[in-house]
Simulated assay, not measured.
Amino acid sequence: MLKFTAFLFGAVAYFTFLFTILFAIGFVPDLIVPKAIDTGCTLLRLSYVRGKSRPAK
């Protein structure tokens, strides 16, 4: 059981690493990923970063 658990942990770690690297490769040139490096941020996120609160509804 210990060998199977170690194998499962290794497989999950490997595929997580692989997904992260492939996402980073797609992130820079804007391939397939939903958000690219050069799309900028929205006004709401920018105001959040600057510490301002959202307008009341």
Results as ranks from 00 to 15, higher is better:
residue 22 L to M: 14
residue 7 F to K: 07
residue 2 L to D: 11
residue 28 V to S: 07
residue 15 F to S: 11
residue 1 M to V: 10
residue 28 V to R: 14
residue 21 I to A: 14
residue 49 V to D: 05
residue 35 K to L: 10
residue 13 A to Y: 01
residue 23 F to H: 06
residue 3 K to F: 13
residue 33 V to D: 08
residue 10 G to M: 09
residue 46 L to D: 09
residue 21 I to C: 07
residue 15 F to N: 06
residue 38 D to N: 15
residue 37 I to T: 13
residue 21 I to Q: 03
residue 37 I to E: 12
residue 15 F to G: 04
residue 5 T to S: 10
residue 25 I to A: 11
residue 47 S to E: 12
residue 1 M to C: 11
residue 17 F to C: 07
residue 52 K to M: 01
residue 36 A to R: 15
residue 55 P to Q: 10
residue 15 F to T: 14
residue 51 G to K: 02
residue 25 I to T: 00
residue 43 L to E: 14
residue 48 Y to T: 08
residue 23 F to W: 12
residue 33 V to T: 15
residue 13 A to F: 10
residue 37 I to W: 12
residue 32 I to E: 02
residue 27 F to S: 05
residue 24 A to M: 15
residue 52 K to N: 04
residue 8 L to R: 03
residue 36 A to F: 11
residue 43 L to W: 10
residue 48 Y to H: 03
residue 34 P to L: 03
residue 14 Y to H: 08
residue 12 V to T: 05
residue 23 F to I: 05
residue 40 G to S: 14
residue 36 A to V: 01
residue 28 V to L: 15
residue 38 D to M: 10
residue 42 T to V: 05
residue 17 F to G: 10
residue 54 R to S: 06
residue 12 V to I: 08
residue 26 G to L: 01
residue 33 V to A: 12
residue 14 Y to Q: 04
residue 17 F to T: 09
